[in-house]
Amino acid sequence: MGLRVLAVDDEADFIETLVKRFTYRQIPVTAAGNGPDALALLERESFDVVILDMRMPGMDGLAVLQEIKKRHPLVEVIILTGHASVESGMQGMSLGAYDYVLKPVDFGELLEKAKKAYERKKLNESRADA
């Protein structure tokens, strides 16, 4: 079973294109427009990597991150931020995010990080099983 991605962002155009590009590369991806939707999807299906935008109306990225890490500690999260602040990236990392990527995103970089995050997840899972 390969990498399964959940992309969370309130920018519909952005998320739509992201989905197309992952799909184009045969990577299963699901889109969520906000934090609660994403959490609901995580309850129903299993994902390996969540690409999470920091700034969203209602529940913001950091809150969603905390919730994900609480309920699904093994799921890796890559933070997506338009706020090029190392601080918020650092904050996200300290809350358990795998990495962060600045908007506008270089897709290649994002893909690379998603794959690495998936590898780490696999590693963690095998450790947990052992």
Partner: peptide
Amino acid sequence: EVNNPLAIIMEKAGW
């Protein structure tokens, strides 16, 4: 504010 539209343009171009 500019970064978000830029991200979309970037993705569209990438697509």
